[in-house]
């Protein structure tokens, strides 16, 4: 009995450790493969003026500033789209909807998460792009806004389900107190429940952004991938993940270009890591705050 229990304990421990080591292994691989580029090109040239052009006709350039800017534009743009919609949806599900309605709505929203990104990208090219160009009077709709809307749609299920958890976790006493003071249900939701769930909602948004920043295929298809610095959401942008996807297939293994793509991957990894960490910290605080 003792041996059995012990060995089962061991197996679970090993599985836990394995996932940690896979993470460490990936980090090590990213770092060791980006090292030759960091050494030969220098960290500075990745973050200096100019634009990304390792296959240049004349002088190769490795600056990823424009690409980072493009990544954040699509990331934050998608949140501007996903958060208001997602929070409203979560408030409806948690506070307004009857259990029956919730049972119908929730799975449908979750189906959104299951749409293959390439299908969504196709939708963006064929439906969203012409729509944007006619609404905003642009020559074409292949731009950062298009990417933001689509990634917003992709991040929506994440935001909805986490924000709903946060809203549901607000103690009933808060609502009862508010209602007892004569507030309407809308006033209670607006002034008590959602503010009380605020940090949970914030964490949900951050996790949604982590998802958005790593998204590749959809963005690759609809943002145009231009290398110039974008000045508005109507400009074409290239994101970190799209940049890797575009160029990884053709680079000779072991070349400087190959290693510099790993630097791009490393930067992407660090960004999403920080965002997820922040979301975790906020979520943790929020849970403790509520239970007290």
């Amino acid at each position: 009995m003792n041996i059995k229990e012990n060995s089962i304990k061991m197996i679970f421990l090993a599985s836990g450790l394995l996932s940690i080591f896979i993470l460490l292994g990936i980090f090590y691989l990213l770092f060791s493969n980006s090292f030759p580029a960091l050494r030969d090109v220098g960290i500075k040239s990745f973050f200096s003026r100019g634009y990304w052009n390792p296959t240049a006709y004349s002088v190769p350039q490795y600056s990823i500033l424009n690409i980072i800017k493009g990544t954040f534009m699509v990331g934050t743009g998608s949140l501007l789209f996903a958060v208001p919609l997602g929070v409203a949806c979560a408030a409806y599900l948690a506070e307004v909807a009857s259990p029956r309605e919730r049972e119908i709505f929730k799975p449908i929203i979750e189906i959104l998460a299951g749409i293959p990104s390439v299908v969504l990208g196709f939708f963006g090219l064929v439906v969203v792009a012409p729509l944007l160009s006619s609404v905003f009077g642009l020559p074409n709709g292949i731009n950062a806004l298009n990417g933001s809307i689509l990634v917003g749609i992709m991040a929506l299920p994440t935001v909805v389900s986490l924000a709903e958890d946060a809203v549901s976790a607000v103690p009933q006493e808060y609502r009862h107190a508010s209602l007892a003071l004569g507030a309407t249900r809308w006033q209670t939701l607006k002034n008590v429940t959602i503010p009380a769930a605020f940090s949970g909602v914030l964490a949900a948004s951050l996790l949604g952004m982590g998802r958005a920043i790593g998204e590749t295929m959809t963005v690759l298809m609809v943002t145009g991938n231009a290398l110039a610095a974008p000045s508005s959401f109507m400009d074409s942008v290239r994101t970190l993940s799209a940049n890797i996807a575009i160029e990884m297939g053709e680079v000779p293994m072991g070349s400087l270009h190959f290693h510099s793509l790993f630097v791009v991957g490393l930067v992407l990894f660090i960004i999403t890591f920080i965002i997820n960490l922040l979301a975790d910290i906020i979520f943790d605080r929020y849970r403790k705050g509520v239970s007290m």
């Binding site: 292949i142 145009g224 074409s236 575009i246």
Partner: peptide, 10 residues
């Protein structure tokens, strides 16, 4: 020479 960085890469 080099492509304009404003070119959309399809």
């Amino acid at each position: 020479g080099d492509y304009s960085p404003e070119m959309r890469n399809m």
